[in-house]
C-alpha cells in the first residue's frame, strides 16, 4: 500500500525517540520512546481526535508530522507526498499546506511583534504578498477569525487568551493550508471561551474544507468535535473508532478509565470520578508486553510478554488489547 490512498494524511509505523544522556561523557544511556509505532489515517475534510494523558507523546507526534522534530522511523504521506524524505524545496511547498495551532496562547505569539507582523509573516516568507496587498490579506484573515482589523498594530500582551488563540489561528490560516494540527487549542482557555474557539474551528472547517488532527488530553472536548478518535497511551495508539462508537462502546481498559475520568459538569459528582490505577510509567527502560499492563486490572501473563497490535473488532473500530478476544 503506497501513498495516502485518498486520505489527506497517512502515517505508518511512526517512531520518535529522544536520547537520554547521562554520566561523565554524556553518553546515550537510553531512549524516551515518545512516539512508538503509530499508524493513523486522516480522511479529507474530517477531524480526527487524538486523546491521551499529558506526556503520552501527542505533541511529539504532531510536531514530528510537520518535521519540527526528526522522526526516528516510519513513513508519512501528505496526499501523495512523502513528508520525511521531501527535499528542502518540496518541504517548503508542503509547509504551505500543513499548519499547526498551539496550546499555549502566551508562548505561541512572538511578544515583540505586532499582530500584523505575526499574521503576515508566513505570507512574506513565502513571497505571497507585499505592502498593501499583504495588509489587506491580514485584515481579511483577522475578520475570518473574528477579530477587529483595528488590532493590526497591537502586541500580543494586549489581548486575552481567547483573542490570542484567534491570532494563532489566523496565522495558521494565512498560507491557506489543507490540514491543520490543533495541539490542545482550548486546554489553556476558560470553559466559556473554549466553545467559542471550537465553534470557530468548526466554521472554518466548513468554509475552507480543512482537515484537522485535533489533540486533547481528555475525551470530553473531543466528543462532539471529531468524527473519529484515536486513544494514545505511552506513544502507542491503543484504540481507534468513530466518535460515537467509542463513547458508547469503549473496549480498551485504558479508554474506559479515560471515559470515567471525564469531568462531569456538576461539581457534586466530581469526586465520583475513577482515577486511573497507578502512574504513567517510565518509557525509557527495556519493556515487554502491552504498555498499559502495569496499570491494567485485567492484565495476565500474555499482556506482560507480548505487545498487542491494533485489530479491527467491528466496522472501523480498532483496538490493541489481548483481553478483547
Amino acid at each position: 500500500m503506497a501513498k495516502a490512498d485518498g486520505h489527506i494524511l497517512r502515517v505508518q509505523g511512526l517512531k520518535t525517540y529522544f536520547p537520554i544522556r547521562r554520566g561523565v561523557f554524556s553518553r546515550i544511556r537510553g531512549w524516551v520512546r515518545a512516539v512508538d509505532g503509530v499508524d493513523l489515517d486522516i480522511p479529507r475534510g474530517q477531524t480526527v481526535g487524538l486523546v491521551g494523558e499529558s506526556g503520552c507523546g501527542k505533541t511529539t507526534l504532531g510536531r514530528t508530522l510537520l518535521r519540527l522534530i526528526p522522526a526516528t522511523a516510519g513513513t508519512a504521506w501528505f496526499e501523495d507526498e512523502l513528508i520525511f524524505s521531501a527535499n528542502r524545496r518540496r518541504m517548503r511547498q508542503l509547509r504551505r499546506q500543513m499548519q499547526i495551532i498551539f496550546q499555549d496562547p502566551v508562548g505561541s505569539l512572538n511578544p515583540r511583534m505586532t499582530v500584523q507582523t505575526i499574521v503576515g509573516e508566513p505570507l512574506k516568507v513565502h513571497g505571497l504578498a507585499h505592502g498593501r496587498a499583504l495588509r489587506q490579506r491580514v485584515v481579511n484573515l483577522l475578520e475570518q477569525v473574528g477579530l477587529s482589523p483595528g488590532y493590526l498594530n497591537r502586541y500580543p500582551h494586549e489581548f486575552s487568551g481567547g483573542q490570542r488563540q484567534r491570532i494563532g489561528i489566523a496565522r495558521a490560516l494565512a498560507l491557506e493550508p489543507k490540514f491543520i494540527i490543533c495541539d490542545e487549542p482550548v486546554s489553556a482557555l476558560d470553559v466559556s471561551i473554549q466553545s467559542q474557539i471550537l465553534n470557530l474551528l468548526a466554521d472554518l472547517q466548513d468554509a475552507l474544507g480543512l482537515s484537522y488532527l485535533f489533540i486533547a488530553h481528555n475525551l470530553a472536548v473531543v466528543e462532539h468535535f471529531c468524527g473519529e478518535v484515536a486513544v494514545m497511551y505511552l506513544g502507542q495508539i491503543v484504540e481507534r473508532a468513530g466518535s460515537e462508537d467509542l463513547y458508547r462502546n469503549p473496549v480498551h481498559p485504558y479508554t474506559k478509565t479515560l471515559l470515567s475520568a471525564v469531568p462531569i459538569p456538576d461539581p457534586r459528582t466530581k469526586t465520583a470520578c475513577q482515577a486511573p490505577v497507578g502512574d504513567v510509567s517510565d518509557t525509557s527502560g527495556p519493556f515487554t508486553g502491552c504498555p498499559f499492563h502495569p496499570r491494567c486490572s485485567l492484565a495476565q501473563d500474555q499482556c506482560r510478554q507480548e505487545c498487542p497490535q491494533l485489530r479491527e473488532i467491528g466496522p472501523g473500530h480498532f483496538v490493541a488489547c489481548w483481553r478483547t478476544e
Binding site: 509547509r95 504551505r96 499548519q99 516568507v125
Partner: peptide, 14 residues
C-alpha cells in the same frame, strides 16, 4: 523551544 519559534519553523521561516 518556545512555541512562537516552532510556529515560524512550521511556516518555513529560514
Amino acid at each position: 523551544d518556545r512555541d512562537y519559534v516552532m510556529a515560524a519553523r512550521a511556516y518555513g521561516c529560514s
